[in-house]
Deep mutational scan, measured.
Amino acid sequence: TETREFDNEEEARKEAERLRRKGQDVQIRKKGNRWELRRT
């Protein structure tokens, strides 16, 4: 599992969408005042 953190939700969602188009399974969750993007 690979995780990346983003400062805002929009960036996290854009990156998640990009990875999903490549066929990756991605989850986003709020972590304090940041957003965590998890690739499984």
Rank of each mutant, 00 (worst) to 15 (best):
K14I: 12
E17I: 10
V26A: 05
E2S: 11
R38G: 08
E36Q: 06
T3C: 15
N8P: 01
E15A: 08
D25G: 07
E9D: 02
R29D: 06
R39N: 14
A12E: 00
K31Y: 04
R34I: 12
F6W: 04
E15W: 10
D7A: 08
R20W: 09
R18Q: 08
V26E: 00
G32L: 02
K31N: 12
F6K: 00
E9T: 01
E10R: 07
A16R: 04
K14N: 10
R20S: 06
R34M: 12
R34K: 12
N8A: 04
I28R: 02
L19V: 02
L19R: 03
W35A: 00
R21A: 13
R20K: 08
E36S: 01
A12D: 00
R13G: 04
E17N: 11
E36K: 02
V26F: 09
T1H: 13
E5S: 13
G32K: 04
E10W: 13
E17G: 07
T1D: 12
R29V: 15
R13N: 11
K22I: 13
G23A: 02
T3A: 10
I28V: 13
R4H: 09
Q27F: 11
R21T: 07
R18N: 08
K30L: 04
W35K: 01
K14F: 10
R39G: 13
T1F: 14
R18D: 06
K30D: 01
G32M: 01
A12N: 00
R18T: 07
K31L: 10
T40A: 10
R4D: 06
R29H: 12
E17P: 01
A16H: 04
D25W: 13
W35L: 02
W35H: 01
L19Y: 07
K31T: 08
G32Q: 03
L19E: 03
A12W: 01
N8Q: 05
E15Q: 05
E11I: 04
E2T: 12
K31D: 03
R20P: 00
V26K: 01
R4S: 08
L19M: 11
T40L: 13
A12C: 14
Q24R: 05
D25I: 14
K30H: 04
K22E: 13
E10P: 05
L19D: 00
I28N: 01
T1R: 10
N33V: 04
V26M: 06
L37P: 04
I28L: 10
R21C: 15
K30G: 03
A12P: 01
N33W: 03
E10D: 11
Q24N: 08
V26R: 01
D7I: 07
R34T: 05
E17F: 06
N33I: 03
K31A: 08
D7K: 06
K31Q: 07
K30P: 05
K30Q: 08
N8D: 10
L37R: 02
E15T: 05
E5G: 06
D25E: 12
I28F: 03
K30Y: 04
T1S: 12
E9Q: 06
L19F: 05
T40Y: 10
V26N: 02
R18P: 01
R39A: 15
T3S: 11
R38W: 13
A16M: 12
F6T: 01
L37N: 03
E9Y: 15
R21D: 07
E2F: 14
Q24P: 02
V26D: 01
Q24C: 15
G23F: 03
Q27I: 14
T3I: 14
I28Y: 04
I28C: 07
L37G: 03
T3G: 09
R38P: 00
R34D: 05
R39M: 15
E2G: 11
E15V: 08
L37S: 03
G32I: 00
L37A: 03
N8S: 14
Q24H: 14
R4Q: 13
E11M: 06
K22G: 09
T40D: 07
R38N: 09
K22Q: 14
D25S: 13
E10H: 10
T3D: 07
R4Y: 14
K14M: 12
V26T: 05
K30S: 04
E9H: 07
D25T: 13
E36D: 00
G23P: 01
A16T: 02
R20Y: 05
R18A: 09
I28K: 01
T3W: 15
Q27T: 13
R4P: 05
E17H: 10
G32H: 02
E10G: 07
T40I: 14
T3V: 13
E15N: 03
R13P: 00
R39D: 13
K22S: 12
T1K: 09
R34W: 06
D25F: 14
R13H: 11
E17K: 09
K14Q: 13
A16S: 04
Q27G: 05
Q24S: 07
F6R: 01
E11T: 06
E5H: 10
R20G: 04
R4V: 13
T3N: 09
R21W: 06
E10Q: 10
R29F: 14
F6M: 02
A16K: 04
I28A: 03
R29E: 09
R18L: 11
L19H: 03
W35T: 00
E11N: 06
E9R: 08
R29T: 13
N33Q: 05
D25A: 12
A16Y: 13
Q27W: 09
Q24G: 06
N33A: 05
R39F: 15
E11W: 03
E5W: 15
L37D: 04
K30F: 05
N33R: 04
Q27K: 07
K22D: 11
D7G: 05
D7L: 07
K22Y: 10
